[in-house]
Measured scan of single mutants.
Amino acid sequence: MAAGGDHGSPDSYRSPLASRYASPEMCFVFSDRYKFRTWRQLWLWLAEAEQTLGLPITDEQIQEMKSNLENIDFKMAAEEEKRLRHDVMAHVHTFGHCCPKAAGIIHLGATSCYVGDNTDLIILRNALDLLLPKLARVISRLADFAKERASLPTLGFTHFQPAQLTTVGKRCCLWIQDLCMDLQNLKRVRDDLRFRGVKGTTGTQASFLQLFEGDDHKVEQLDKMVTEKAGFKRAFIITGQTYTRKVDIEVLSVLASLGASVHKICTDIRLLANLKEMEEPFEKQQIGSSAMPYKRNPMRSERCCSLARHLMTLVMDPLQTASVQWFERTLDDSANRRICLAEAFLTADTILNTLQNISEGLVVYPKVIERRIRQELPFMATENIIMAMVKAGGSRQDCHEKIRVLSQQAASVVKQEGGDNDLIERIQVDAYFSPIHSQLDHLLDPSSFTGRASQQVQRFLEEEVYPLLKPYESVMKVKAELCL
């Protein structure tokens, strides 16, 4: 049975990233139509530049190519590739079939990587351009969430054990800070992308030097003109047959890092959902379990974690691919890159769409948070109580021993009897502590235990987050809708 299948058929496997999760716009960027249309555009740009620099290419040939950029006979191309065992030459023939007058000058002087690699770089750039505003929107939604809850005390956790208090907004800023680093890295790697350009079979530009009869300047002009037509500021000066596969490492490393950030955020949300302090959106008709109707599973956060793990592992592909590119190139890269580049971007696209949807509907339960604080705060307040007693004339050592005994009794009630923490009640009825009984409410005010959390939130948002989001103001209103 021949390899390949009808990918629109229910009898043929289709990647869930495309069929179930990723956005239509990201799927289109990695589609065959987008790819092969870009090949034709690159052939047109090459012909236009070659004509401008004096090669015998007519206006009629150029116009014929322009008129057929979208006229792609995919069936013919597939048949040609089956016959020739070469995808680029299959599309040269297919393009030439609908451009008979231009057929002889299509791909003039070029090698397969002229269309293959340059198209990949265009796709990487455009895919990054799709991700950047999506990530900015996630940051914006979380920034709104953090600002609104900047002063809401909550129990902090280290080692997932109760620690000092923080605020809900401050905790959210930990998430935002990681995503801001990801946004900066995505922008950097996007701006650092260079075009492969017009380089020939081993990167020496020998074929173009021959076409222009040894004119170095025209060869350099050709490279520059096509690079500018493709919208790049610069091209690699040095290439082998391909652009260095280190570029793929750079791009997928940034995406993998984004995956790590999203995994951490969504894990926190899942843990908070278990504590009943916070939940992701839950639709009115949504079913959490087929057997347990009360369940409210954090399905979206779980999906993000599941896909983020996949995204983090994909960076190993370009690392290994770059390491086995012998001399000017081997074909070890080809099949692998067809999979890992598309999957990385479709996965990143999915987790950003999902995280935006989550961040637009996060639900906080202040009463649950308050109750958990009441359970733990008495123990945390013991040092403040000791200091207040010393100020009232008591002995630190005597007070410490009193607190120690009462704390152990209260802990026994919590752990052995399943009761509430009654340390404060014990202190309130103990005559030894009568000098500070009137101060206990103040000493137990949760806001006095959150330090500068709310001020940190305000400063972080104003100095770091809002300036970073400013270039994306025009796209901030787009909502994230999930079908599944």
Rank of each mutant, 00 (worst) to 15 (best):
T201D: 01
L444T: 07
I106C: 05
M181C: 13
L46A: 04
L319D: 04
L165V: 09
S359R: 14
A308K: 03
V324T: 14
W326R: 03
L186Q: 07
L53S: 07
D332N: 01
Y21W: 15
D422R: 01
M299S: 13
N126G: 12
T111G: 04
D11R: 09
Q61P: 07
F460W: 06
D248P: 02
K134T: 14
K402H: 07
A3Q: 15
E81R: 00
S334P: 05
L46H: 02
H437A: 10
G231I: 01
F28L: 08
L362V: 09
G451L: 02
A136T: 15
C340E: 04
L482H: 05
S257H: 02
I72H: 07
S448Q: 14
V324N: 12
S474H: 15
T321P: 04
H93M: 11
A411L: 05
C113M: 05
V457I: 15
L482T: 14
D216G: 14
L258Y: 15
L352F: 15
V414A: 06
Q164H: 04
L311N: 00
G169M: 06
P293D: 01
N118Q: 02
A256L: 05
E80K: 08
V368M: 02
S67L: 13
C27P: 09
L121F: 05
S306R: 01
R83K: 10
E50D: 00
P56R: 10
I351D: 03
F327D: 05
L121D: 02
M89D: 03
A18L: 14
D11P: 14
Y114R: 01
D445T: 15
D32A: 14
P24D: 13
V115P: 07
E464L: 09
P24Y: 10
M26W: 01
S9C: 14
D182R: 04
V247E: 13
S301G: 12
V219T: 10
Q164T: 04
I424N: 07
L346I: 14
G288A: 08
S207T: 14
R452G: 07
C27S: 15
D144M: 15
M299L: 03
G116D: 15
V457W: 06
D178P: 00
C399M: 04
L152W: 08
G197Q: 06
T154N: 02
F160N: 07
T330K: 05
L131W: 02
R190P: 02
I358E: 07
H97K: 13
L423G: 04
A410V: 02
A22L: 09
S112Y: 00
R426V: 04
L155I: 03
Y114W: 13
H107Y: 02
E425K: 13
R149C: 08
G418S: 06
D73W: 06
R337V: 02
R452L: 10
Q210E: 14
I105A: 11
A273P: 01
N126R: 10
M312G: 06
L444K: 07
N71I: 10
F145P: 00
P471V: 15
P318D: 00
V414Y: 03
I265E: 03
